[in-house]
Design a protein around this nucleic acid. Structure first.
Lengths: 235, 235
DNA sequence: ATGTAGTTTAAGGTCGACCTTAAACAAGGT
DNA sequence: ACCTTGTTTAAGGTCGACCTTAAACTACAT
């Protein structure tokens, strides 16, 4: 069991999982873009994964994880997020850089280490970027609402950065924005749909694509002022 | 700096380092055997590493690390042993299995993580198998004396398992023998040179090759009886 | 001085994971 | 019905990391 699989196929499974919205297949071009590969290469890989029974490919529509594939992807994501927690909580590495670091570590460990790590970390509920750590049992539904869905004047709190990536996290870190931060949407610029938000006396702008990657929830308290405040470790 | 290098070349550097005795070149056949590769493949790799300036190859004698190569190997060994400590000390994974696990992790992290890990672990002096963790500055000379050098009747204490490997550690674990354990050499069998030692009322036998991998030092105290006792974390 | 054991080179093979360019094809809007 | 856009297939390439078999060669001990 556990089906030997290399780092590269694993990245595909993970990306596929992350890019999946609802029940729709993910266009291969989207996959390719996320991984920085050519579309042809991505198609090749999808075929390889299909032969292994991990993804189902609907021609001209996209690829979807089979349940085997989804299981595998979930454990990968689990490892990834646990490592992220380890790197921030135990090694005190910067919030915005642990994503890329964890991308290496996730392929280097099996179940043994993963579970031990989970216990060691106190069975955390989310990664440092606000995403839930998959465990046995259904994953708690993440809020579907993002910054892109908000209307000017609304107040909210950053819940998570969903498809994570180095550059995105760097941008957020640069402006002191972290899960838990309260903010308000000040305006949506007519040109390019730029979202300008106010976070503790600063203004930060986000393009529509980035905005769609910022999951939000109604501001919890009157917001204890904070910009760069932490993230919750429990659900 | 840091010269991009993959897991496989890294394993070669590490093995080369571990197999080096004094100043002599390591025969490629020995390298190949340690890695479980064919001699031809090992030769190929040595060439690749030579082109990169990491090893020097003396035809028909063997390969030696250049100073660049040695530096690289040392940092690899450093990562490896730090991960071993992490896995045993923090995750409570079994002593005999952390070697193989660390073999994966060592290729998945850079300097940032390594140094943070080191600090986090309290700058440990040795790995769980008794080998010193390389740091800047000269590595403390490991005792050159092994079980293979002992005479019947002698008492000693296990200091380290030097070239480590899964099966060797498994054998030791099976017999409750760990660094720090005191024992006496009871006999050397004339056939096959088997070393039979007494450890806390048990007898365990070692072939000559294994014996040469067990570094020993004079028993420290009257040995608080112990078989399966720990290992020191400080020099 | 010679022979054997250990080393090296040569030649050819496989597999995975990428790339490019170019052609064939399907979906969906006008 | 057509045309554009996005998708897939085909063809050929590269590179790294392994493999085998077979021939050439060296070191060293007898």
């Amino acid at each position: 069991m556990a089906v030997e699989i290399g780092p590269s196929p694993e990245m595909y499974l993970k990306s596929l999982f992350e890019l999946t919205r609802g029940h729709a297949p993910v266009p291969i071009s989207a996959l390719a873009e996320r991984l920085g590969h050519s579309v042809v290469s991505a198609t090749e890989m999808v075929h390889r994964l299909e032969r292994r029974g991990l993804v189902a490919h609907e021609p001209y529509r996209g690829a979807r994880l089979t349940s085997d594939g989804a299981t595998h992807a979930r454990t990968l994501l689990r490892r990834h997020r646990l490592w992220e927690r380890f790197l921030t909580d135990e090694l005190n590495l910067p919030w915005e850089s642990v994503h890329d670091l964890a991308c290496q570590l996730e392929h280097a460990v099996g179940e043994e280490v993963t579970e031990a790590l989970d216990r060691r970390l106190g069975i955390p509920a989310t990664c440092p970027h606000g995403n839930p750590i998959p465990r046995s049992g259904p994953t708690p539904a993440a809020s579907a609402r993002t910054l892109a869905d908000m209307k000017p004047g609304e107040h909210a709190e950053l819940e998570a950065v969903h498809p994570e990536s180095g550059p995105v996290l760097a941008y957020l870190a640069q402006h002191g924005l972290r899960p838990g931060a309260a903010f308000s949407l000040e305006s949506i610029e007519p040109t390019d749909g730029l979202r300008v938000i106010g976070v503790s006396s600063t203004r930060v702008a986000f393009g529509p694509e980035l905005a769609a990657r910022l999951r939000v929830r109604p501001a919890s308290g009157p917001g204890r002022g904070g910009g760069a405040r932490g993230d919750e470790r429990r659900a």
